Simulated scan of single mutants.
Amino acid sequence: MSDGVRLNKRVAEDVPCSRSEAEAYILGGWVSVDGVVVEEPGARVGHDRRIALLPGATAMPIAPVTIVVHKPAGVEVSAALIDPAQQEGKQRFLKHHLHKLELVAPLEKSASGLVVFTQDYRVLRKFREDAPEQEIIVEVAGTISEGGLQQLNQGMKVSWQNETRLRFATKIATPGLIDRLCRDVGLRVLAQKRIRIGRLPMSSLPPARWRYLTPVERF
């Protein structure tokens, strides 16, 4: 598609509609070129190509999305985790959903668990102004120092789950913090898994899979 005219121009002429409506159709995944959906308004198409709108096509603006990922341990946090082949649920994936997507809950490479990306300014504001509590399960080795649990409980809630597992509940979980806090009380972190952010549990989301936040879910 290196020659020809821009797809949004062809759609505007063929439907017919305004150029902005044509772009909305394309970004919304409603336009096919010779039977293949194309989501780039600037794609070049020849005059002999067949342009069609899919059933149910709408030029309504695309609502911002929030995406929840179960990050495996040892994997860097990036939008590359959002592979369409790894999606859970039935909401239509659009390339536009990756546009201006921001990470709002960082997680260090060695840890696993919930990671959140969003386009929604309301979610961004929530995390920036009143970050939700995070629940993190931490596997540790070593012997905790005397008074170590009380020390860990300064500014967060920490409790033993069993002899080698701690539960952290905190609004402050910057990468590296839990490792440092545990090291200060004689413990070595073996693994971390974030299982909840605010009111959102990881639930049954499998490792390396992702899904869209539903309209009824809140942090």
Score class of each variant (00 low, 15 high):
residue 163 E to T: 14
residue 126 K to A: 14
residue 59 A to C: 11
residue 127 F to I: 05
residue 120 D to F: 01
residue 177 L to Y: 04
residue 37 V to H: 02
residue 87 Q to G: 04
residue 191 A to R: 12
residue 15 V to K: 07
residue 38 V to N: 11
residue 77 V to P: 00
residue 21 E to T: 10
residue 92 R to Y: 07
residue 183 R to T: 14
residue 31 V to H: 00
residue 91 Q to Y: 05
residue 185 V to A: 11
residue 201 P to V: 09
residue 144 I to P: 00
residue 82 I to G: 04
residue 193 K to D: 15
residue 130 D to C: 10
residue 29 G to F: 04
residue 161 Q to P: 01
residue 125 R to G: 11
residue 94 L to F: 07
residue 200 L to C: 11
residue 44 R to Q: 15
residue 182 C to G: 08
residue 56 G to F: 11
residue 123 V to Q: 04
residue 61 P to A: 08
residue 8 N to I: 01
residue 217 E to F: 08
residue 115 V to M: 01
residue 56 G to S: 07
residue 134 Q to V: 02
residue 41 P to Y: 01
residue 17 C to N: 02
residue 14 D to C: 11
residue 98 L to R: 10
residue 199 R to I: 04
residue 215 P to E: 13
residue 20 S to N: 14
residue 217 E to Q: 14
residue 166 L to W: 01
residue 87 Q to I: 11
residue 33 V to Q: 07
residue 193 K to Y: 11
residue 212 Y to I: 10
residue 159 S to E: 13
residue 23 E to W: 00
residue 40 E to M: 08
residue 48 D to N: 11
residue 45 V to C: 12
residue 49 R to F: 03
residue 5 V to K: 13
residue 119 Q to H: 05
residue 140 V to H: 01
residue 1 M to A: 13
residue 6 R to C: 09
residue 33 V to M: 08
residue 14 D to A: 12
residue 158 V to K: 00
residue 97 H to W: 03
residue 30 W to R: 01
residue 95 K to Y: 09
residue 97 H to L: 05
residue 177 L to R: 11
residue 207 P to Q: 08
residue 141 A to F: 10
residue 40 E to C: 02
